[in-house]
């Protein structure tokens, strides 16, 4: 019988260590589990989500279900940006992701950006079900396209849903939908910006990291709305802000837009650097 999901991953405690007790994937998804990413002494499982050809073709649907058991840490990442090829006969490329994060567990999802080619249609739905004291770091981001080929905000549609549920209750329901529209083309909405990211942080183990991100993003935000002189120049421009969400404002969402993808890599590297202590290696190292 064909499995419902193209990928399934379970991480549980085995002999007092986190281990992938199930790692199943079928075409076009591949799970790569390198054993030596995290430095010794830090108990974290790293998994690379890889697709054949580095992207998703029109009409393909990748669905992945992940379960992170009590006290375990799982890092999900990619090797490079996920390419979304042009839609053929109007068919979407699709990714569905569902994660269950148990008590005191930590899921870090920090992929490279999604790059939609001209005329691509992409739809992504990600649901995160957290237990009451589970922890989540989620990065979701995308670029304007293959700029070197002159493709700038030239895809047909991009839709990304990220929903976070705490003990079954929705605390964060976010869908970003960018569709070409004659009177409001995507490029007019995004101006000179070429990359957009969202970072979500939730959970008790991340409270000090969250606090410091808030401070740094807050001061960058203040600067961005004060520097009148620099407005004419778009060079090196990055706009970021944060909001709290959820019961007692326990969650944090940071939104970033930048004129270069590299600026967002630098931003994420800096803001998430402290995660090294929990996941055993610096996020986006070498990128």
């Amino acid at each position: 019988m064909r499995e419902k999901w193209t990928g399934e991953l379970t991480v549980e405690q085995c002999c007092n260590r986190a281990a992938a007790t199930r790692a199943y994937a079928r075409y076009p998804l591949k799970l790569v589990l390198p054993s030596k990413v995290a430095c010794s002494g830090i108990d974290a499982v790293w998994v690379y989500l890889v697709t054949y050809g580095g992207g998703i073709v029109s009409g393909d649907s990748i669905s992945c279900k992940v379960s992170v058991g009590d006290h375990c840490t799982l890092v999900l990442t990619t090797q490079s940006s996920t390419k979304i090829y042009k839609a053929v006969q109007g068919k979407f490329s699709e990714q569905v992701f569902k994660a269950l994060v148990a008590k005191d567990a930590l899921l870090v999802m920090m992929p490279d950006p999604v790059t939609c080619f001209a005329a691509a249609k992409y739809k992504q739905v990600q649901h995160f079900f957290l237990s009451l004291d589970a922890n989540l770091v989620l990065v979701d981001w995308f670029t304007s396209g293959r700029r070197e080929r002159g493709e700038v905000w030239a895809f047909e549609s991009f839709r990304s849903t990220n929903n976070v549920y705490l003990d079954g209750n929705p605390v964060f329901l976010d869908t970003m939908n960018l569709e070409q529209d004659v009177s409001l083309p995507i490029s007019s909405r995004l101006q000179d910006f070429h990359s957009v990211a969202m970072l979500v942080i939730y959970g008790p183990r991340l409270s000090s990291i969250r606090k410091r991100i808030e401070e740094r993003v807050g001061s960058q935000c203040e600067e961005a709305v004060r520097k009148k002189k620099h407005r004419s120049s778009t060079h090196g421009r990055l706009l970021c802000s944060f909001s709290s969400f959820g019961p007692s404002d326990a969650g944090l969402v940071v939104r970033v837009a930048a004129v270069e993808t590299e600026l967002i890599y630098d931003f994420l590297k800096q803001e998430l650097a402290e995660l090294s202590d929990l996941i055993g290696a610096p996020p986006y190292y070498g990128k």
Partner: peptide
């Protein structure tokens, strides 16, 4: 099906409390 359509404006709006 409720969704946001303008990430840039959303990012800017959350800066509101930081306006001088």
């Amino acid at each position: 099906d409720a969704c946001q359509v303008s990430p840039l404006l959303d990012t800017a709006q959350a800066c509101h409390d930081h306006l001088f």
